[in-house]
Amino acid sequence: MLITEREKMVEDINTWAEQYGRNRSALMPILQEVQKKYYRISDYAMQEIADLLGIHPVEVYGVVSFYSFLDDKPKGKFIIRLCQTISCDMVGKDRVARQLENDLGVGFGQTTADGIFTLEWANCLGMCDQGPAMLVNDQVFTRLTPAKVNEIIDGCRRALSHYATQRKEVHAL
């Protein structure tokens, strides 16, 4: 990470700490903000947060590693989480999974080489009556079919290039 980006992140973390409070109960919201904006919570970020909240970095690390939606390693811009739990399993999540792997060219737990997609399993998404279901970042997609996932992936790519042309830049990953 470049120094300027790091400084920006420190500034952000400070802002969030002011917003949520400089105490341990602000930890989760701050981590969620960092995750959302920077797609991961780096070692540097963890130490910075620990320092602001007066706790040990290893405690932050313990928390980050506990929650499925917080990552210390880099993830893609779009995290696709396919529900693997029973109701979705019974209506064909395996075939949807296979097609996701085929279309993204990576397996579950992996990130595409261009850093755009991360494919993961999720446990029950609460869409059991409309399965198979998956989350793409915060957005939920239901009644998936193998054919449908490709459209969704294309949609993500289009959204990204639209965003890029708007901003005339793609953030360095």
């Binding site: 070692d43 963890m46 130490q47 706790i55 040990h56 970095p57 290893v58 405690e59 690390y61 313990g62 590693s65 506990f66 929650y67 499925s68």
Partner: peptide, 17 residues
């Protein structure tokens, strides 16, 4: 604060930062 439980479930491990 060197050691903490890290990870979840049966992947829990005592780790350093």
């Amino acid at each position: 604060g060197v050691l903490e439980a890290v990870g979840r479930s049966d992947k829990t491990k005592i780790e350093t930062f």
